[in-house]
Design a protein around this nucleic acid. Sequence first.
DNA 1: AATAGTTTCAAACAGTTGTTTAAACTCGGG
DNA 2: CCCGAGTTTAAACAACTGTTTGAAACTATT
Lengths: 230, 230
Amino acid sequence: MASDTVKHQILTAAGSVFADHGFKSATVREICKSASVNVAAVNYYFGDKQQLYLETVRLAHRLKTERLPMPKWPDSVSPKEQLHQYVHVMLQRMLGEQDLWQTRLMMREVMRPTDACRSLVEDYFRPQFERLLKIVDQLVPNPVSEEKSHQLAFSVIGQCFFYLAARDTVPMMITEEEMKTHFAIDELANHIANFAFAAISSSGIGGDESGSSRQNNRQQSNTAKAKNVP
Amino acid sequence: MASDTVKHQILTAAGSVFADHGFKSATVREICKSASVNVAAVNYYFGDKQQLYLETVRLAHRLKTERLPMPKWPDSVSPKEQLHQYVHVMLQRMLGEQDLWQTRLMMREVMRPTDACRSLVEDYFRPQFERLLKIVDQLVPNPVSEEKSHQLAFSVIGQCFFYLAARDTVPMMITEEEMKTHFAIDELANHIANFAFAAISSSGIGGDESGSSRQNNRQQSNTAKAKNVP
DNA sequence: AATAGTTTCAAACAGTTGTTTAAACTCGGG
DNA sequence: CCCGAGTTTAAACAACTGTTTGAAACTATT
C-alpha cells in the first residue's frame, strides 16, 4: 500500500501551500502539482478540499509537538530557568528553519480562526498556556489574581508570536547583520526570558496598578497617571 | 460629480473586504456589492483590482494616523508616562472599535508583505518605531547598545500586536467576563506599560545569565551602524 | 495468465474569477 | 431641444476554481 505515503505526500504539500496562501486562495491544482500527483488525488484520498485542510492542520500541530515537546521539569529547575526554556522551545517551534509551514498554518488559525481552530485551541494552545501559567505563578513575588496571571502569560506569548507574525517585516526595520547576530533564536530567547522575568518579578509589589479607574480615552487628556511609584 | 464619493465608497468597502479575506480571496464582486455599485466600477475608477488594493492600503494608513496621531510630548512628561501613552494610542489604533478594517489590513501586510508593504514600513512603521526607541532610551538606566534598544522596542510592540493578531483566539482562552473587565483597551494599556516599564527599567543592570551564556551585549561600543551592503 | 480490487489519469463539468464591451443613462450648456 | 462628455449598466469573455467521471494502468491473489 503506497496509499499512506501518497496521503502523506499530499498532506505536506498541502500544508506548505495552505500556509502560504490560506485555505481559500490555495488551489488543489497547486497542491497536487507540488505533490506530484493527479488533480483527482485530493478528492480520492480526502473527499474534498475542506477535509484535506482539517487533516493538514491536525498534522501540523501533531508534528510540531512531537519534534519539540515541552520539557517536564523536576522541581530542582528554578522557575526562572523554566521560563527561559519555555520561551526557547516556543521560539524554536515558531522560527525553526525546517517545516516552517506548520507554525505558519497554525498562525493563520490564530489570526482568522476556521473550524479547525477550536480543537487546535483546546488540544494545543490551552495546555501550553496552562504550563506557562504555572511558571508565571511561581515567579510572581506575591500571589496575584487569575486575570493578572493571564495578562502576564499573554505578554510572554505575545513577544514570541510577534517574531513569527512579523517574520518578513522585522528584517525591513533592522540591518541584515543585526538580524543574524541579535535576533537569532538563542539571542531572542535570552532577551525575552530576561525581559519577562524582570517584569514578572516586580509584578504585584508596587500595589494595584491596573486601577486607573475608567477614565475616558481621548489621547489628549492625560492617560491615567500610573499612581504607583517605581 | 459624484465620482469622488463613489471612489471613496468603493475604497472603504474594499478595505473591509480586503481586511477580511486578503487580496486574492477578496472578490471585486463582493466589494462592489458592498459598495452598491456595478461590477465594472472598480475597473472604471481604479484600473484593476491590484491598483484598488494599493490605494486601499494607503488610505488605511492615512486615516489611522489622522484619527489617532501620536502625541508630541513636552519634556515635562516623564518617559514612563510617555511609554504609557504610546502603548495606549497603539492599542487604540489596533483594537479601537470603529474602522477596524484599517489595522486588520495593515496587519495582513505585516504578516505577508505585498508590494504595498515597503512604503507602509517606511512611512508608517519606521517613524513610529523611532519614536518608541527614543522613549526606551530614556527609560533604560544605563546606555545600551542599539540592538538592545531594538529588542526592547519590539517587546513592547509585540505585546500590543498580539492582541490584534489573536483578537479572535484570546477570547477562547478566557471567560467573556474577564475579557470585558481586564482586557479592554485601558486595562491592557496599563498592564503592558507597567510590564514593559519594569522590564526596561531593570534592563542592563542585573546582568544576563540564562542558559547559553553569550558574553554579548553590555553597552557595546556605540552603533555598529548600518552599512547598507546589498 | 486471468481475475478482482485499487490507484492513476486526462478530460470534462459547472461555477466563479477579473476584466471588457457596447449600449443606456444623466445632466448641465449650446 | 439636443448634444456629448461622464457615468452606470447588463451581458459577455476567457481563464481559473473544486469536483466528477469513466476508462486505463497497476497490484496482488488465485
